[in-house]
Structure formats: structure tokens, C-alpha cells
Design a protein around this nucleic acid. Structure first.
Length: 332
DNA sequence: AAGTAACTCAACCGCCTGCTA
DNA sequence: CTAGCAGGCGGTTGAGTTACT
């Protein structure tokens, strides 16, 4: 399997090197008149790799000249970052990565570099391409109704079906209206009950044991009732594994804000690795109605009774259970 | 088999930000 | 204060590939 994916990469490289023409032209980003454009040849790659591995890349604008390349510094930087650097991870996205991308995009929007920082070895360009092609697919296969939460037959087999519909619904909302509602409901840059747990993981090199607990406690005073889990290789962030449940007795005073906004009682609260908070309520219908009437971009309704998203792994199945998920404002 | 629509993804473009002289 | 430059980032392009008819 590993070999076949390697072969695929080699095949792709080989065809790429043989087909596309290279043009000489003027680059708008630099003063060089004679810079090469288009695809990189194996010789150019070799030159760049040899130069970077021996000298590093202190100043990209100096790299082309010193490495003997007729490219602009920007092009060299891009080639290195997106293709040549040794820690790059290629091949299809794993289900865990897909989950994480969807979840992070729900939280931070089109901040590809931020999303990529949570996926070791993946580039912002790759994630952006993946997302855009995924969006195109969704546009070509729109759900029957933008307000309905019933997934298509294909999507019923996908644990992401409902999240995808949610994302598309959000995309279809008028941005200006979203901002207006957001500003009205959340005049602060970030609602007080939301925080980026990803910050707690920065610089942790995958060893996150204890860090989230500490971050949560320092920022909210919350004590979680379960232990955060890390997967075997300590490097892949799996939101489901990091979800910790906090019982309602532990809710701090800041939770009063959201409790006062909700028409019904919150049963439990949980926070995932992106700082996305979910609130479980037993009165599913009332909750759904409330989220609908609010039209609030900061909340999604997750209809647990429909069995979407494979939520049973995280939450107990209940015919009357509903969950709302918070997200970051897109301006963050 | 041929034509074409849809998809993929590397690379480019242009804007923004931060630094420095 | 400001102009110039470099780097970073998100949006977009377009050529090749794949899937479909």
C-alpha cells in the first residue's frame, strides 16, 4: 500500500515534468525581467533542494541567484513549501484529517494557513484545493432543501453528511447579514464562552497530554471529568478523541451568558480540541426552533436523533437529544 | 472509440503586513 | 512619517487527467 502510493507520486511527478511548457516572462512580484515560469523541472528542483539543504533559506529573494535558478524568490519559496520540503505529507487525506479540516473550517473559515498548522505535513494550498473541489461537488449536488436537515441518500452513508449540509447552508447565507446578526448578538470579538484550545497545543509537537486540561482550567476554571486522550503516534489530532464532557455542575459563571440566551435547560456541555463548544439539551424540537429563529451563525443545530455524524461515539443516543455547536465568528 | 464535462492541483496573482532605512 | 521591499496568505487560473455519455 505504501509502495503503491509512492509509485503514484513518482508517476505523477514523471508526467508533470514531461507535459507542461515552461515560459519565460515578467513577474509582477519582482524586478527580474527574465524569470522562468510554469512547472519546475527535475534539474531546478535538484538545484533548489541542494541549495536549501546546505545553506537554508534566510532570504528568499537571494535564493534564485545563489542556487543558480532563473526563478523569482517567491516562486522558490512556494516550490519549497508546497512540494519539496522533506516533511511534506502527500497522498489522500485520511478520514481523521477530513474531519479535522471540516471542523476547523467551521471554526475559523478560509484561514487555510491556520488550518494547515493543525495538520502536520499538509500545506495550506493542498487543503484549500481539497476544500474547493469538495465545495464544487456540493454545489453540483445540492441538498433537497437548504433548511432541511435530511441528507441525500449518498450522504446518509457519510458521517460528514450533515456537517456538509450545514457548511453549505452557511456559505449560502448572505455574508453581510451574517455579520450584522453576529455583531448584534456578539459585540465582543469573540463570544466569552469560546476560546481557541488550538492555542494550547501550539509548540507542543503533538505531545498534548495535560496541556488541554491546563489550558481549560486556566482560561475557564473548568475541571473536566474525563481524561484527554492522545492517539497512538501522538501526532494526529482527532477531535472525537479530544472531546471531554463537563457535567452541568461544573459550568462556570461565564456560562450564565449562554444559559440566559437559551430557552431551555442545558443538560451537559462539552468542548472539543478547536474550542468548539457543544451543549446538549433534551428538548430537541424546542432547541431546533430556537436555533432556527435566531439564524445565528455562531450556532449549528446537530440533530442527534437523526443519527448523523456518528455522534453515538461521543454522545449517548437519545431519541429526544439535540446538540448545538458553537463556532468562532468568521472575523476571528 | 471519441467527445466532453468534471475534477485535480501546481503555480501564479495581487493584496496585506511588518520591517527597515 | 513614508517609501520600498520581502514574505505570507487567500483567491484564481489553466493544463492535464479522469469519468461519463
Amino acid at each position: 500500500m505504501f509502495e503503491s502510493s509512492l509509485n503514484e507520486i513518482e508517476k505523477q511527478k514523471a508526467k508533470e515534468y514531461t507535459v507542461r511548457p515552461n515560459n519565460m516572462g515578467h513577474h509582477s512580484c519582482c524586478n527580474q525581467q527574465k524569470v522562468k515560469r510554469g512547472l519546475w523541472s527535475p534539474e531546478e528542483d535538484e538545484k533548489l533542494i541542494r541549495y536549501i539543504t546546505t545553506h537554508g533559506y534566510g532570504c528568499w529573494s537571494e535564493v534564485p541567484e545563489k542556487a543558480g535558478l532563473q526563478r523569482c524568490g517567491k516562486s522558490c519559496r512556494l516550490r519549497w513549501i508546497n512540494y519539496l520540503r522533506p516533511d511534506i505529507r502527500r497522498g489522500r487525506f485520511t478520514p481523521e484529517e477530513e474531519k479535522l479540516i471540516i471542523s476547523l473550517h467551521g471554526a475559523v473559515g478560509n484561514r487555510w494557513a491556520h488550518i494547515a498548522s493543525h495538520l502536520p505535513g499538509r500545506t495550506d494550498n493542498e487543503i484549500k484545493n481539497y476544500w474547493n473541489s469538495w465545495i464544487k461537488k456540493k454545489i453540483r449536488k445540492p441538498s433537497a432543501s437548504s433548511t432541511s436537515i435530511t441528507p441525500s441518500s449518498n450522504e446518509q452513508n457519510s458521517q460528514f453528511g450533515y456537517a456538509q449540509n450545514q457548511q453549505m447552508d452557511l456559505l449560502n447565507q448572505d455574508l453581510a447579514t451574517k455579520r450584522q446578526i453576529q455583531d448584534t448578538l456578539f459585540p465582543l470579538p469573540c463570544p466569552p464562552f469560546m476560546f481557541d484550545i488550538g492555542l494550547a497545543l501550539e509548540g507542543s509537537n503533538g505531545n498534548v497530554d495535560g496541556k488541554i486540561d491546563q489550558f481549560l482550567q486556566e482560561n475557564t476554571g473548568l475541571m473536566n471529568t474525563e481524561t484527554w486522550q492522545v492517539n497512538q503516534n501522538q501526532e494526529m489530532i482527532q477531535p472525537a478523541s479530544f472531546t471531554s464532557t463537563l457535567d452541568s455542575n461544573c459550568l462556570p459563571p461565564l456560562m450564565e451568558n449562554i444559559e440566559s440566551m437559551l430557552p431551555i435547560e442545558v443538560q451537559s456541555c462539552s468542548i472539543n480540541v478547536q474550542g468548539q463548544m457543544s451543549l446538549d439539551c433534551l428538548q430537541r424540537n424546542e432547541l431546533n426552533e430556537w436555533v432556527d429563529t435566531q439564524q445565528c451563525p455562531n450556532f449549528y443545530f446537530w440533530d442527534q436523533a437523526e443519527g448523523h455524524l456518528g455522534g453515538q461515539e461521543i454522545y449517548p443516543t437519545s431519541s429526544n437529544m439535540g446538540t448545538i455547536l458553537s463556532s468562532y465568528p468568521s472575523s476571528l
